[in-house]
């Protein structure tokens, strides 16, 4: 049980790092693109939200696994 909690905590931290890097890179790319081409900001924004949503999806699935670990459902 305690190991499950530990695993969940570490897992959540790693998820945060991964999602943070991923979404940060998307934001960087999007802002740079908008600065370069302000007239295309609408399309860039849509693509940015979409991609960020995908990354968030992965992160949240990871978070659910962490919750499962913390709850001890897996073992």
């Amino acid at each position: 049980m305690e190991l499950g909690l530990l695993a969940a905590g570490i897992g959540a931290g790693i998820i945060a790092i991964g999602a943070g890097i991923g979404i940060g890179m998307i934001g960087k790319g999007a802002v740079e693109s908008i600065a370069r081409q302000p007239e295309a900001s609408g399309d860039i924004r849509g693509a940015m939200i979409l991609t960020a949503a995908f990354i968030e999806g992965v992160a949240l699935i990871g978070a659910i696994i962490c919750i499962l670990l913390a709850l001890g459902v897996g073992g």
Binding site: A19, I23, R45, M48, L60, A70
Partner: peptide
């Protein structure tokens, strides 16, 4: 309506990953 959505997307998106971690930790 557009800029409204845009302004908060980046903020909430980057916060959401933070939120996940914080929520899990606090929860545990």
């Amino acid at each position: 309506a557009n800029p409204l959505v845009f302004q908060h997307v980046s903020v909430s998106q980057s916060l959401s990953s933070l939120r996940i971690a914080l929520a899990s930790i606090l929860f545990i």
